[in-house]
Nucleic acid binder design. Structure first.
Length: 444
RNA sequence: GGUCCCAUCGUCUAACGGCUAGGACAUCAGGUUUUCAUCCUGGAAAUCGGGGUUCGAUUCCCCGUGGGAUCACCA
């Protein structure tokens, strides 16, 4: 048996969880789970100024939402200073590091690593061997003082202490890898396997950032995207299963994942593709789950009205929403456009709207009366879209479908554009449908 | 600028050196449809350029061009 795989989630709690962040964590997750390994959760919070506990808490919550579980931690580097201090002292004692006199703020000293100025070769799963001359780095700083360590030092110590076997991270870390390898060698530890992921970029090909729009998970959730869709999209940015499948749950991704199928080139984030992936994940949802999400995106007013008639919302969801939504926030837009209004209130009579082409209102009214008579014959318990359509289809074909269906749809909804009349009639129910179709009575 | 990385349709990508370069999203056209949405069918659309190696390069090598990352007492 080979060595147990251990990967890590090492975010810095200096802000909200970022898409690029999540992608790195996701790949660490997929690789570890695929190989029955473990994942260590740790916060790299040595920057005392910028790190905040609240960010750490929010990040943990995001991981939970995404389903990215870990096996150890969360650990906080800020709580391990004794260990780092010991390592720094050891490095100094062994001549690998030294205290330098200068310091930015003019006070105190700084700890520098004594660079052996050698060439270091990084063996990377994605890119092969990358050789870099470390002379360029000079004697880089590893700590502000013996008890105030910096990133490169803490990463290396934690990876060694945690027995991390695979470091999977963004390509932006590639040039700092040789520095870390130098430290690992000085500490006499084993160098992990590296995999540097291609960057996710915006339309301008630059690393995805705030200026490109939404980048935080919470923003995507607010826009009505499903966490599993975000995960799916991120996995496909820089990786593919080797065949033409595209829709995967997290579990399915674990099954298919392989470092060998990671791309080298940067990938542009696409909302259009996300929409498509999201829609397909929405269709995988159970009806109960679907409704739960959809109702969240309604205005309070509309939500209350639907809550008062759960059966109505069931019908709307299964016959209208599933057909029309790409993401759940689309219901917010529909709501704003008053596209649910007709469900609760009978729209006023608009003679122009109801007249099909140049047939005029009288024809419309006559056809509506006939349609009502036909529908009268469908019993309450047979009131389905299929049955409604069957009763009207052939007959309306004889006198012109538009002449019947257009007035019917508009008299029920009051809208220029709407779902088809059969669906609308089904949702409204038999009684209400007939009331709306029989306009003659009230006008005379 | 130094160092490093990368390069297939607009976008994400497939193609152990060998079919007409395949799929998805987007787009366009046609069809179904009273409308919108959906759905069906079809189309257009790519190997950055130049040299090699080879019987044969998207694929391997070199040069160029382009893009990106990184050069902190941030992570």
């Amino acid at each position: 048996m080979t060595q147990q795989v251990i990967t890590r989630f090492p975010p810095s709690p200096t802000g909200l969880m970022h898409i690029g962040n999540i992608r790195s964590l996701l790949f660490n997750y997929l690789y570890a789970r695929k190989h029955n390994g473990e994942i260590v959760m740790r916060f790299e919070d040595t920057d005392r100024e910028r790190s905040k506990q609240e960010y750490a808490d929010l990040m943990l919550k995001d991981l939970e939402i995404l389903g990215l579980t870990y096996d150890q931690g969360p650990f906080y580097q800020s709580q391990k200073t004794d260990r780092y201090t010991a390592v720094i002292k050891q490095l100094i004692d062994e001549g690998f590091a030294y205290e330098a006199e200068e310091s930015n703020d003019g006070s105190g000293k700084v700890i520098r690593f004594k660079n052996p100025n050698t060439e270091v070769t990084v063996i990377d799963c994605v890119r092969g061997e990358i050789t870099i001359d470390t002379t360029d780095f000079g004697d880089f700083v590893i700590a502000r003082s013996v008890d105030n360590p910096l990133y490169h030092l803490t990463v290396v110590v934690d990876d060694i202490d945690g027995g991390i076997t695979h470091v999977i991270r963004g390509e932006d870390h590639i040039t700092s890898t040789p520095r870390q390898i130098l430290l690992i060698q000085a500490l006499g530890a084993q160098v992990p396997v590296y995999a540097h992921l291609p960057l996710i970029v915006g339309d301008d090909k630059k690393k995805l950032g705030k200026r490109h729009g939404a980048v935080n998970l919470s923003q995507f959730l607010e826009m009505g995207y499903l966490p599993e869709a975000v995960v799916n999209q991120l996995a496909l940015l820089g990786w593919n299963p080797g065949d033409e499948r595209e829709i995967f749950s997290l579990e399915e991704l674990v099954q298919e994942f392989s470092l060998a199928r990671i791309q080298k080139g940067a990938a542009t984030f696409s909302y259009q593709k996300l929409d498509d992936i999201n829609k397909q994940h929405m269709l995988r949802l159970s009806e109960a789950n679907y409704k739960e999400h959809a109702i969240e995106f309604l205005s309070d007013d509309t939500r209350n009205r639907f809550n008062a008639d759960k059966r109505l919302f069931d019908k709307v969801t299964s016959s209208i929403l599933v057909e029309r939504l790409n993401k759940f926030s689309d219901v917010t837009q529909m709501d704003r456009d008053r596209e649910f209004e007709y469900l609760f209130e009978k729209p006023g009579i608009d003679e122009n709207l109801m007249s099909f082409k140049d047939e005029g209102f009288d024809t419309a009214r006559k056809n509506l009366a006939m349609a009502a008579d036909k529908l009268e014959q469908v019993s309450e318990d047979q009131w389905t879209i299929e049955n409604i359509k069957e009763v009207l289809w052939d007959w309306s074909g004889e006198i012109g479908r538009g002449s019947v269906l257009h007035p019917m749809r508009t008299v029920m909804t009051g809208m220029q554009r709407s779902p088809d009349p059969f669906t609308v009639a089904y949702v409204l129910g038999k009684k209400e449908t007939l009331v709306r179709l029989r306009i003659s009575n009230e006008n005379e």
